[in-house]
């Protein structure tokens, strides 16, 4: 569960031509992963060219299940290394998705920081931070 400190803006993603579809989907509360339509490999982070086929025009964004499990995590216990816009303690998790790629996200309201453990089954959910920023978090999922 993450609490934001009022008055300190949350940093927005850096959006450019390579990752725009990824973040546009998040804005519509949809989750997509980049896939090369030639070799069918999934890639994270999204990129302009497929490293397997070396092609610039085969990179699609396909709907993803958003299901996965916690691969690793950290918990900010002091403000020394934490982002000032989020209340201490807060956790950040690396989640391995069913598609095999891994993304980082905070735990949703239904997961307390102490409950997080490696291997925990989770599922994506979306949070509107403010009118110009929507992010994904992960909530509990029955295995």
């Amino acid at each position: 569960m993450v609490e934001y400190v009022p008055g300190i803006p949350i940093l927005k993603p850096y959006i450019d031509a390579d990752n725009k579809p990824y973040w546009d989907a998040v804005n519509d509360h949809k989750f997509v992963v980049q896939q090369c339509n030639k070799c069918k490999n999934y890639y994270q982070p999204p990129r302009p060219m497929c490293p397997e086929c070396l092609t610039l025009d085969t990179m699609d964004f396909v709907p993803a299940s958003g299901k996965g499990e916690v691969h690793s995590y950290i918990i900010y216990t002091t403000d020394k290394m934490a982002y000032p816009g989020m209340k201490i303690p807060y956790a950040v998790m690396v989640v391995e998705l069913d598609e095999g790629v891994r993304i980082t996200a905070n735990n949703a309201d239904d997961i307390d920081t102490e409950e997080i453990h490696i291997g925990m089954p989770v599922e994506i959910t979306f949070v509107d931070i403010d009118d110009s920023l929507t992010l994904y978090q992960f909530k509990k999922r029955e295995a």
Partner: peptide, 12 residues
């Protein structure tokens, strides 16, 4: 296009 895309194509 991004600089990333231009660099990748040029090297290829």
């Amino acid at each position: 296009r991004t600089e990333w895309s231009l660099a990748s194509e040029a090297i290829k």
